[in-house]
């Protein structure tokens, strides 16, 4: 017996999990988007804080190189890729004359976006371990590595919150698409 939510949408879970943020009411999408923007900014400012400290320390052992920047850039690129996808083309709801060739393309881009984000996060942890933990740099310089891991973590959190806020469309809200 398929699991039907309202509006006839099928749920993929066996148990219907209620939306935990319903108490915010009709403002939840706006609050989610603001929170996503806030976490994105916190992530990048954590990284800027780390490299500012690094640039003001002339006696440090490690030097900030391109490998510190690349994981943040990849994660941000993944976030941009994910948010440029038209959400309705993932369900196959839109009527198209050329059949349903758009659905798998949209899902492919979604996969690429998630792969970029996960790759950025994994790469940042990699850089932390190989560049900062293994050579046993002093505590104050370990912060540079932690800063870039925190950057990727916060950007990923921001992407997740943005996705949830945009996709848990309340059933009573109608979207008139022009």
């Amino acid at each position: 017996m398929p699991n039907y939510l309202s509006e006839g949408r099928r749920s993929i879970f066996l148990f219907k999990i209620p939306n935990p943020f319903k108490f915010l009411g009709d403002k939840q999408r706006a609050i989610g988007v603001y929170a996503a923007g806030a976490f994105f900014a916190i992530g990048w400012w954590a990284f800027i804080d780390a490299i500012t400290l690094a640039s003001r320390d002339p006696f440090k052992q490690v030097s900030i190189g391109f490998e510190d920047w690349i994981s943040g850039i990849l994660t941000t690129l993944g976030m941009i890729v994910i948010n440029l996808i038209d959400k309705s083309s993932l369900h196959g709801d839109t009527f198209s004359y050329s059949g349903d060739s758009l659905v798998w393309k949209a899902r492919l881009f979604l996969f690429v976006g998630f792969a970029l984000i996960a790759g950025g996060l994994a790469g940042s942890v990699c850089v932390l371990i190989l560049k900062y933990i293994v050579p046993e740099v002093p505590e104050s310089e370990l912060y540079y590595g932690i800063g870039q891991v925190a950057q990727c973590g916060f950007i990923m959190l921001s992407t997740v919150i943005l996705w949830i806020a945009q996709n848990t469309q309340e059933e009573y809200q109608y979207n008139f698409m022009l």
């Binding site: 988007v33 929170a35 996503a36 923007g37 806030a38 994105f40 900014a41 400012w45 804080d49």
Partner: peptide, 22 residues
């Protein structure tokens, strides 16, 4: 709204980063 959220947090993070860097 996303960009506004970024600016609001920047308004708080900029003094924090400046103070952390002394």
């Amino acid at each position: 709204e996303f960009i506004t959220g970024i600016f609001i947090v920047t308004g708080f993070c900029l003094p924090l980063v400046l103070a952390h860097a002394e």
